[in-house]
Design a protein around this nucleic acid. Structure first.
Length: 420
RNA sequence: GGAGAGGUCGCAUAGUGGACUAGUGCGCAGACCUGGAAAGUCUGUAUACUCGCAAGGGUAUCGAGGGUUCGAAUCCCUCCCUCUCCGCCA
């Protein structure tokens, strides 16, 4: 949610920036409703003040009148408040100045590439064929047992996934190693978390992640949603709290299963476990002051790149254009890994800078050293998701159908090669 | 799931229809005192909305939401959460 004061002062700018993101917003109506609700609040406050004085004098007749008037005005206010919040919540976060303006993913801007896609001397197999042949992924059994877009991960595949997680956690919890990536920035390590995978609708909504609802799994018997990312339950960890500036940044790295209905993606990436309803993901969530949040995002991207370089997987870094970014994002940076079978880069990571958009609804604040209280800025980002595993399979495949384990992961897997 | 006890300011606690403008203690901040500190004394100590150029004012908030009343922390209803015991269970 944006700050209404900011909208009042910059209606044209808000309208323009929302439009760049592809949002049609009715700022005029919002401001009209805002004016009406403020007038009513003023009147109601006056009436309540009168009520106090009248009650003191035990003036029943006058009290009755005020009561009636108050009830009417309160009803009116409730209707305007409802419309006000509906309207203001439709306004997305505004893109930062350096975000390229564009309408969809075709206008995203790759800003750097790393690694040379490997030349294979044999016809490459895709992740699905490799996974099946090696016996580490199985979507057929999953479709019988659970349905389409689910998968079993098995054997060496499971060990590889946990190796990837351990590898990343070792870096993220080690201040010395982080310092080399952080440069001048605070190198405070990340606190590992295994968060709940279910969330209350009300909290989900405060994260601005409940919509689109058709993308979410819902459990009616308990009125809970399944999370689509660890971000969803990491982000509200400090809701309704005022943090101290000296305790910032607060950095967390959460491991959880993620659930997505993938509504509307029928026919897209239908092969194997590239796009599934359930996958595991290691996710970063960090809380900083407003002044530090852009640097924090850059730091997080540097960590992501460091991990991909350690794995020796070619990738490109892409700045997502205004029209393709998420509603709560002020700036979104993706990392796309090279997939030899598709002969292109595919999204494996994202880094979202939310500024205070989520914090305003969550009421997560920080008391600055000078005593001022303001909303924190939040960042979230992928560390590793199931897809990273697929990128490893494809990039590390050998002619005989086996897959080599990236060097940095070998001490965690205990084997150097995946074979059938 | 059953039975019981609770939820009041950062923390602890008082408050059972009007003087609650929520008291007290602790904590925290500042001042005094001191060679310096501790102790002591004094002062201050929330958030949100709203009006105002400002100084400042008004309103709301005692787990949440409804209701009763001229008037609710206090009475009634619904819900949520925490704790204790029992049951079930990785």
């Amino acid at each position: 949610m944006l700050d209404i004061k900011f909208i009042r002062e910059n209606p044209k700018l808000v309208e323009k920036k929302a439009k760049q993101k592809g949002y049609q917003v009715d700022i005029d109506r919002l401001l009209t409703v805002d004016k009406k609700r403020r007038k009513l609040i003023e009147e109601i406050d006056g009436l309540r003040s009168q009520r106090k004085r009248v009650a003191e004098k035990r003036d029943e007749a006058k009290g009755q009148l005020i009561k009636k008037d108050l009830r009417e005005k309160e009803d009116q206010l409730e209707r305007y408040q409802e419309e006000f919040y509906t309207l203001i919540r439709q306004i997305p976060n505004l893109p930062l100045e350096d975000v390229p303006i564009g309408k969809d993913e075709t206008e995203n801007q790759p800003i750097r590439k790393w690694g040379e896609p490997k030349k294979f001397s044999f016809p490459v197999k895709d992740y699905d064929e490799l996974g099946k042949t090696l016996g580490i992924t199985d979507t057929e059994t999953a479709s019988k047992v659970t349905g389409t877009r689910f998968g079993y991960l098995k054997g060496q595949g499971v060990l590889l996934e946990f190796a990837l997680i351990r590898f990343a956690l070792d870096l993220l919890t080690n201040e010395g190693r982080l310092r080399k990536i952080a440069g001048d920035l605070n190198a405070k390590p990340f606190i590992p978390v295994i968060p709940p995978v279910m969330i209350k609708p009300q909290v989900f909504d405060k994260m601005a992640r409940l919509e689109p609802k058709e993308e979410r799994y819902y459990i009616p018997s308990d009125d809970l949603y399944l999370i689509g990312s660890a971000e969803h339950t990491l982000g509200p960890m400090h809701m309704e709290e005022t943090l101290k500036e000296k305790d910032l940044p607060k950095r967390y790295v959460g491991f959880s299963t993620s659930f997505r209905r993938e509504a509307g993606s029928y026919g897209k990436d239908i092969k194997g476990i590239f796009r599934v309803h359930q996958f595991d993901k290691l996710e970063i969530e960090s809380f900083t002051t407003s002044g530090d949040s852009v640097k924090e995002q850059d730091f997080i991207v540097a960590i992501q790149e460091h991990l991909m370089r350690s794995l020796e997987i070619p990738y490109q870094v892409v700045v997502i254009c205004s029209g393709d970014m998420g509603g709560p994002d002020a700036r979104q940076i993706d990392i796309e890994a090279w997939f030899p079978s598709q002969n292109k880069y595919r999204e494996t990571h994202t880094a979202d800078l939310m500024t205070d958009y989520q914090a305003r609804r969550l009421e997560t604040k920080v008391r600055r050293n000078d005593g001022k209280v303001e909303f924190v800025h939040m960042n979230d980002a992928t560390v590793f998701a199931g897809r990273t595993l697929l990128a490893i399979l494809e990039n590390y495949q050998a002619k005989d159908g086996s897959v080599l384990v990236p060097k940095v992961l070998q001490k965690y897997t205990g084997f150097t090669k995946i074979t059938s």
